[in-house]
């Protein structure tokens, strides 16, 4: 099994200006990495989730996520967008976006990933490490270490 996150799933300032463009770019990255079996299904499931309630959180965070039959293995894609993208949070745009995509069968995994991530996102030091990182390698290292306790 692959790691949940890898360099190719980290997008630094991708050329996007809307939430939908960003979500599509992140799904593309997951697809290129061989983690998606049905791109349309995943996009549909992500959109359905955003429709219920936007996934923006306080402090510049966007958390699009879905359990989807279009996903082969539990994955996180990350994007940093300096200009910010509107994820519907009352306190402004999101500049740190985590996409959590898990297979339809793994509800428990899904919850565990979101809870672990939320526990780190409470801390400003985690967010500032992600904002200051200069390449995907550093981002993967920060998230693996802080969220999944891996070196």
């Amino acid at each position: 099994m692959n790691e949940i996150l890898e360099d190719s799933l980290v997008l630094l300032d991708p050329p996007v200006s809307t939430k939908n463009e960003l979500i599509e770019a992140m799904v593309n990255a997951l697809e290129v990495a061989g983690r998606v079996s049905d791109r349309q299904q995943l996009l549909k499931d992500l959109a359905a989730r955003e429709e219920i309630m936007a996934t923006g959180l306080e402090g510049g965070i966007g958390l699009p996520h879905a359990r989807s039959a279009g996903v082969k293995e539990a994955s996180i894609a990350f994007a940093r967008v300096g200009a910010g993208v509107d994820f519907g949070s009352a306190d402004g745009k999101a500049d740190l976006i985590f996409m959590i995509a898990v297979p339809a069968t793994s509800e428990a995994d899904h919850m565990k990933i979101i809870a672990s991530l939320a526990r780190r996102l409470i801390h400003d030091s985690f967010k500032s490490s992600l904002r200051m990182a200069t390449n995907p390698d550093e981002i993967v290292a920060v998230i693996s270490k802080e969220v999944f306790n891996k070196k």
Binding site: L57, I114, A115, A118
Partner: peptide
């Protein structure tokens, strides 16, 4: 009052 804090509990 914080969504993030509530999520961090991982309550099912």
């Amino acid at each position: 009052s914080s969504i993030l804090m509530i999520l961090s509990l991982g309550v099912t």
